[in-house]
Design a protein around this nucleic acid. Sequence first.
DNA 1: TTCATACTTCGATCGTAACCGAACCATCTC
DNA 2: GAGATGGTTCGGTTACGATCGAAGTATGAA
Lengths: 232, 232
Amino acid sequence: MKEGPDIAQIGSLIGDPARANILTALMGGRALTATELATAAGVTLQTASAHLAKLEAGGLLAQRKQGRHRYFTLADDGVGKLLEGIMGFAASRGHLRYRPGPKEPALRKARICYDHLAGDFGVRMLDSLIESGSISALGEGLSLTAQGETHLAAIGIDVSGLRSNRRPLCRSCLDWSERRAHLAGSLGKALLSNFLEKGWARRTENSRSIFFTPEGERRFLALFPLEMADTV
Amino acid sequence: MKEGPDIAQIGSLIGDPARANILTALMGGRALTATELATAAGVTLQTASAHLAKLEAGGLLAQRKQGRHRYFTLADDGVGKLLEGIMGFAASRGHLRYRPGPKEPALRKARICYDHLAGDFGVRMLDSLIESGSISALGEGLSLTAQGETHLAAIGIDVSGLRSNRRPLCRSCLDWSERRAHLAGSLGKALLSNFLEKGWARRTENSRSIFFTPEGERRFLALFPLEMADTV
DNA sequence: TTCATACTTCGATCGTAACCGAACCATCTC
DNA sequence: GAGATGGTTCGGTTACGATCGAAGTATGAA
């Protein structure tokens, strides 16, 4: 019928549980094979193959074949942003799919959101950056200050290199577990990469949660202090 | 399966064509009755009733009964924001549902996006406000300048009244037809209301397009001039 | 009270799409 | 080559949900 973009089409793509599982798995940022995605989705390989074809045709997924493997990723940053948005909304309406296993708390503490840090730690990091004057929050947007640029250079992040990127430097992303914003954009990505490179934290195998080593956690908390206690 | 928000649930809510039509119709900002929504969706009243119940249970719709009518609206601003996001994404992937009738061009020129102005005119307005220094765009966020506040006061908009609102004053919203940002937030809403009150423009009956009178269009263009030609 | 309008609930039908078993292609190893 | 692994295609089954006719409830009008 009539006018405008077809939201039903992409809604139905996301609306199938198996496909939603696939997309959620790919929010981990890694490229995954069809077989891995099949187990993540809880379906057989044939079924997953059909789903993957649909998602790719719909422009949500990109694949690149490497030998006899087919690696799938989210098509681009726009897909990640879309899924973030839907996740935030779903969480705000209480549409969770709790299975409060042991993984739950780890996920709330620190997890990967497409390519940047989310969860308690992610929110804390942004709060601290704003409090210290490294990032200024105007309205809904975030921007890096000159002070912040030197601060980040000390950590070992080359901001000017990131600026040349077409992607926005700072973006705020609504955290579904904390229900507050954390830092996305190329800077958010660079920070997480930095922590992983330094060995402060590492990804876990079959989950989106991020594991901080004791030493890494100590350093992270020292680097991003919070003046005020958590008075939300 | 496992962890996190259930995006499949809301995906499937949006994924049905009839429900998508209902939601799109409600993006017009008006409260509509079940019967109106049924015709908008192209289904019978019984079917629409079932859909409306599901949408309400899912937290997307709010209803208030008035006499023997039941008026439905989007549940809150969050739903509008979500749908905007999905529309922008769908358009970016070419998921349109063209029926290039006579309504098409009018819709591209000026239409309502939940509660603010979108389309060519909406994008122009924001561009002009930025060019004139009334709004500053930092990163992805927008913020009103002191100069802009006096500028808007001259038009007849009480910014301080809007600030007391919990809702953000300026928000950028991706325009699916222009593929660029236009102004949302309480300020975007106030501006559109202002145009309608002054009689510069009016809503059309069964469409989201906004009709500008010749006089109103002249004034609008004079109020929001563009220095540069449209060199995108 | 009666009739009309707005909407919901029930029941039955029907289509589509998700699913898997089995067979088939492709790539790597030995 | 033969065997193994990763992935797709095909065919048939199944289940779910969208749909509408018909009957039922609520509100308003005459």
